[in-house]
Write a protein that binds this DNA or RNA. Structure first.
Length: 490
RNA sequence: GGUCCUGUGGCCGAGCGGCUAGGCAGAGCUCUGCAAAAGCUCGUACAGCGGUUCGAAUCCGCUCGGGACCUCCA
């Protein structure tokens, strides 16, 4: 069975066979959040997807070092001279210390990541914690002649860089064309060339976040931290760099330029970009005001929402679309995902109830191979889910005696579900089984009573019992053996 | 304006030269005291117009619609 993995590489614009630089080790870097506000669902999609990348590589047996940074300084609202640091701005707004802002929104971010069942990264470095590395990197770029100083700020010299290396390869930008469209904005700038970007900004007297440097007090540019931290923890060259599509330019393009200027070679073998989550066809973003916060979605506490959805349903919903497609967020789609998720999970949980046969015409190994093929084809989770519904069909068929499965096949199906549903896609069963133990014992008695009533053909009382539970959101379902029950929230 | 992506059945969403995607919703059947669940079967599809091809949802051209990026963004 082939477990080859093909990854769509934004740099080559091709699905490339994944071959790690130093197997079995894999370096994975993902641009994390700027912690100046609560992460919204669009952000979560990216982190959830790269969690699946991390999980699948790990499942394949790679030793993955997953680095995802926290941007806690340097993310300025524009690179012009009046640019404001997002963290500093929010600190003034909320009348808190910048580090209080950082802590507050980092906490929320971590809580959301946990609730969505994302694995923690191996290393979660912060920009403020790597000031020395960033300053050292600037020195190297200066030494190589690809940066210059103006009034205590250091800018990356795109023209000097372009004379030696290609610039704009990742995003397909043409500097001349960019210039055509930006020259009007290029006013009283201290940069030599419009496309130059800040590596270090001198801090104005009122600027709160500031660090000493060889060029005076200031703060690092946004793009620099990722270059410095990925180099520190993953080396000058590493395997996979991920992030949202909107980071391709200028952020990732600048990263490539910084690393290349510093080390003479491009840093990343496979660039991966996940597409946007949209609302009514438009990108979900904080600035457009159409973003959902995770807790609003769970509680259904938002004008555009009819009801709440559990984190697991949301995760399943995200997995039903390919990461390179935009995904539109709607009540209908979420409702459909909820139903699908519940069907999937109830089949998963009922594998033990299947009675094995001695013979079977089902080909479970082929099913497993198709699961690997789906994931191997650029992490195609929608196809994987379609294959897992084939497993659902087999399990349900077996449960009501229409499909013969051997004991080995049932175990195999359980393994496949465990691997792909739980380990790879990071889904979880709706509720912990421990909570079910006592209610189950009680419900067994209820079903015994109903059975007696039905045998006496006292259907009215039997229905009364069922209705009484239904009023309390507990749905009773009769089966041949007795009954099943579920919570059904409204 | 530039660069790029995209338009699939009632809805979501894969596929991207020939072979059923899948889910949700809908119809019929089986099972069932009824119901629910589950299984089986079914329906209608590839924006429009041309072209290439034995064959196009898939490739090419044009038209129309939607979106992203072009120094805030996951």
């Amino acid at each position: 069975m082939s477990k080859d993995l093909y990854i769509y590489n934004s740099l080559s614009r091709n699905k490339d066979l994944f071959q790690p630089l130093n197997a079995p080790f894999v370096g994975l870097y993902v641009c994390g959040p700027t912690v100046y506000a609560n992460v919204h669902l669009g952000n979560c999609r990216t982190f959830m997807f790269f969690d699946v990348v991390y999980r699948y590589l790990t499942h394949l047996g790679y030793k993955v070092r997953y680095v995802r940074n926290i941007t806690d300084v340097g993310h300025i609202t524009s690179t012009f001279d009046d640019g404001v640091d997002r963290i500093g701005q929010q600190a003034r707004l909320e009348q808190l210390e910048p580090m209080e802002i950082v802590q507050k929104y980092t906490n929320y971010f971590h809580e959301v990541m946990r609730v969505f069942n994302n694995h923690s990264p191996s290393i979660e470095p912060t920009a403020t914690g790597h000031m020395i590395e960033q300053i050292e990197m600037i020195k190297k770029i200066l030494d190589q002649g690809f940066a210059y100083e103006v009034n205590g700020s250091i800018y990356f010299d795109v023209q000097a860089y372009r004379a030696k290396y290609p610039y704009g390869e990742l995003s397909g930008r043409n500097v001349e064309e960019l210039y055509e469209n930006t020259r009007t904005l290029d006013g009283q700038d201290e940069k030599k060339f419009f496309a130059d970007f800040a590596l270090w900004k001198a801090a104005s007297p009122e600027h709160i976040m500031r660090w000493p440097s060889p060029w005076g007090e200031g703060f690092p540019g946004w793009h620099l931290e990722c270059s410095a931290m990925s180099t520190k923890y993953l080396g000058e060259q590493f395997d996979i760099h991920g992030g949202g599509m909107d980071l391709k330019f200028p952020h990732h393009e600048s990263e490539i330029a910084q690393n290349t200027a510093c080390c003479g070679k491009g840093p990343v073998k496979y660039w991966m970009h996940s597409n946007m989550l949209t609302v009514n066809g438009q990108k979900m973003s904080k600035s457009l005001g159409n973003s959902f916060l995770p807790h609003e979605l769970f509680a259904g506490d938002h004008p555009l929402l009819e009801k709440g959805y559990t984190p697991q349903v949301v995760r399943f919903f995200m997995m039903q679309a390919h990461y390179r497609s935009t995904l539109d967020f709607s009540n209908d789609a979420l409702n459909a995902a909820e139903k699908a998720y519940e069907r999937m999970m109830s089949a998963y949980e009922s594998i033990e109830q299947c009675k094995p046969s001695t013979e079977s015409d089902a080909d479970i190994s082929a099913l497993e191979a198709r699961c690997y093929a789906a994931m191997g084809d650029d992490f195609n989770t929608p196809i994987l889910i379609a294959e897992l519904f084939e497993a659902v069909r087999l399990i349900n068929g077996c449960k009501n005696g229409q499909q013969a499965l051997t004991a080995e096949q049932l175990t195999h199906l359980k393994t496949i579900m465990d691997h792909f549903l739980m380990d790879v896609m990071g889904l979880q069963a709706p509720e912990a089984s421990a909570d079910h133990e006592l209610p189950n014992v009680m419900m067994d008695a209820v079903f015994a009573v109903r059975k007696g009533l039905k045998e006496r053909k006292d259907y009215a009382t039997a229905d009364l019992l069922r209705d009484a539970f239904a009023e309390r959101n507990i749905v009773l379902k009769d089966t041949k053996e007795g009954g099943e029950w579920t919570y059904e929230k409204k």
